[in-house]
Design a protein around this nucleic acid. Structure first.
Length: 572
RNA sequence: UCGCGGGUAGUUCAAUUGGCAGAACACCGGACUUUGAAUCCGGGGGUUGCAGGUUCGAGCCCUGCCCCGCGAGCCA
């Protein structure tokens, strides 16, 4: 093989290009920001991260690294009512799991409260901010609407001295919650509603997870975000599309503060959404609070903790995010595309094991007995991963009494079914060819036992005469089987866009999103699977061993299943 | 109603900035196979939202229209 053959798929010629990279490249080329790039990932610690955040994380950290810069993890903790250290810890952990390392220890917008306050006084002193005594309802009504200009607050023309005095007394705690706010003095007629004298500070006598009771006024998102970026030296402040209309405000604040010329610049991109799920903290919290799922790490949830417990590899998520690129078109990806990345990664890395989900007994009638009259046991070698010979082989006990998958036997085989049925010969993986000689049923007609003979010449699954079989099946020795519990998952929602029809996503909840199989039979080595590891149950799919409950396996994703497609097509 | 953003295959994105509209996933077919997996090969798929204009030539530029998203928290 020549060196060119094993060159990576993405050489310099095919490096991803998108509007963000083009922007950064052009900034680098013309010396904007002195050829420097610094980004930040700015979650609010009021919930758990989900798959949608993965795109932002990959972009914020990935782009900085790609262009030789750095990325901070900064908590946007300006609202004490909803935030908690529980979420801080989980978010730090999730970002690390995804494979990204912040340049510094986590940062907090709350660390900048003093500076923010000083800058607010600066704006008040410049006549660019004022204290408004009206309540929220009144202010909202005065703001006007789309195509309808707002009206100015009667307090807008207060003197600078009075504003300063009032603002200081707000900070000193002289007024109750909601009594007054500090507002930027911009333009109540502006087409962009964000610029109609936005609120900068609100009074909230609340305990903050980091600053405790030091403050009773808290900055709003808009007043805190750009300034935090500036303090940290962020150059490219990347966020999702819904902040597009906030950009003029982001710039307005920065323009009116004593800052160096290298100011951060906000750029928006489309958030990541998927079919058959929801990615909104509010909706996810609803599922958890209403106990519709087990918790924030339920494997059916698109939270990072959920998909991690489900067995999705971080590498697959990173590859996916790189593959989909970034644009400004609102996009909802087919969940199948993510799954295909999960399969691709796991196919290369997951060890193969044999587990029978829905067991039916198979008896080999001509299996030998040993010198004591007991059924012989033979340990056969099976590859741990045919995709990767370096993983070696394991020895699996085989005998005349086996469990096979009930789906793998049909008394009356339908067209194109080429697994086991009376008179049919198949291969038992790594062991022998067997031919079905008969079967037993119970009173209801369910198959209870399948009888076979085996061909001793086909040891290891090889036929010396070269004859072929149409099917190779997995199996587990009855006497050596270990019981495991398996959770099979379908989509959490039955509709492509949950809530599209009725407005409430819960109306589209899939009632059969989880099926638990209590007694699946596994080959002995499955009992040694490390918690959290993901293996392939041959012919069935990838399964993740639960991190805390031994013997519980979550189906990460099934294998592609041509037989299921055939059945689906013939059903129509 | 006003402002901003967006519209290329079923889906998500490309198209060297005005030069033969492509890729992946999905779907269909074939090869191979000790996983009906993986892998390999091939196929169907398009009025580039619509209409007009500029141009030798328009997905790209201009004009008008249509559709979708976001915006009137003291949330982020």
């Amino acid at each position: 093989m020549s060196p060119a053959d094993d060159a990576p798929d993405r050489g310099p010629d095919t490096a991803p290009t998108d509007f963000l990279r083009e922007l950064i490249r052009s900034d680098m080329a013309d010396g904007t920001f002195g050829g420097r790039i610094q980004t930040r990932f700015p979650p609010e610690p009021n919930g758990y991260l989900h798959i949608g955040h993965a795109k932002a994380i990959c972009l914020d950290f990935g782009l900085a690294a790609e262009f030789g810069g750095t990325c901070n993890l900064r908590f946007d903790d300006t609202n004490p009512d909803t935030e908690d250290t529980e979420f801080v810890e989980a978010i730090v952990d999730d970002v690390a799991w995804l494979g990204f390392e912040p340049e510094r220890a986590p940062l907090y917008a709350s660390s900048y409260f003093d500076q923010l306050y000083a800058w607010a006084e600066h704006l008040v002193s410049a006549g660019l901010a004022y204290v408004d005594d009206q309540d929220g309802e009144t202010i909202s009504a005065q703001r006007g609407g789309f195509g309808r200009p707002g009206v100015e607050s009667p307090f807008r023309t207060r003197s600078i001295e009075e504003n300063l005095d009032l603002f200081r007394r707000m900070r000193a705690g002289e007024f109750p919650d909601g009594a007054r706010v500090l507002r930027a003095k911009i333009d109540m007629q502006h087409d962009n509603m964000q610029l109609r004298d936005p609120v900068m500070y609100r009074i909230r006598h609340a305990h903050h997870h980091r600053t405790g009771d030091d403050w009773c006024i808290y900055p709003t998102y808009d007043w805190a975000h750009g300034q935090s970026d500036a303090i940290e030296g962020v150059t490219h402040s990347l966020c999702t599309l819904e902040f597009d209309s906030h950009r003029p405000l982001y710039d307005w604040y920065l323009d009116h503060l004593p800052l160096p010329s290298d100011r951060p610049r906000q750029t928006e991109f489309a958030r990541l959404e998927f079919t058959y799920t929801v990615t909104s903290k509010r909706k996810l919290a609803k599922l958890v609070e209403d106990r519709l799922v087990d918790g924030w790490d339920d494997p059916r949830l698109p939270t990072l903790r959920g998909i991690r417990r489900r067995g999705y590899p971080a590498a697959a998520i990173r590859d996916f995010c790189e593959f989909i690129g970034v644009a400004r078109t609102v996009s909802r990806h087919e969940i199948e595309l993510l799954e295909s990345f999960v399969r691709r990664e796991l196919n290369a890395t997951a060890l193969r094991r044999m587990v029978v989900l829905r067991p039916v007994r198979l008896t080999i009638t001509n299996w030998p007995v040993d010198e004591h009259g007991a059924a012989a046991v033979e340990w056969v070698e099976v590859a741990n991963n045919p995709e990767n010979p370096d993983e070696g082989v394991r020895r699996v006990p085989f005998s005349g009494s086996l469990w096979i998958e009930s789906d793998d036997f049909r008394a009356e085989p339908p067209p194109k079914f080429f697994r086991l049925s009376p008179g049919r010969e198949v291969r038992l993986r790594g062991a022998y060819f067997v031919t079905c000689t008969g079967f037993e049923t119970d009173d209801a007609g369910n198959v209870t036992e399948v009888m076979c003979t085996y061909d001793p010449a086909t040891t290891g699954g090889n036929a010396p005469d070269g004859r072929k079989v149409k099917s190779t099946m997995h199996w587990v020795s009855v006497d050596h089987a270990v019981d495991v519990m398996v959770a099979l998952y379908e989509r959490l929602f039955a509709a492509e866009v949950p809530g599209e029809a009725t407005g409430d996503p819960l109306d589209d909840l899939n009632p059969t999103s989880r099926e638990v199989l209590e007694r699946c039979r596994a080959e002995p080595i499955v009992g040694e699977c490390p918690p959290g590891s993901v293996v392939q149950f041959e012919r069935l799919g990838y399964f993740a061993h639960d991190p805390s409950t031994a013997g519980l396996f979550h189906r990460t994703v099934g294998l592609r299943d041509e037989w299921a497609n055939i059945q689906r097509r013939s059903a129509r």
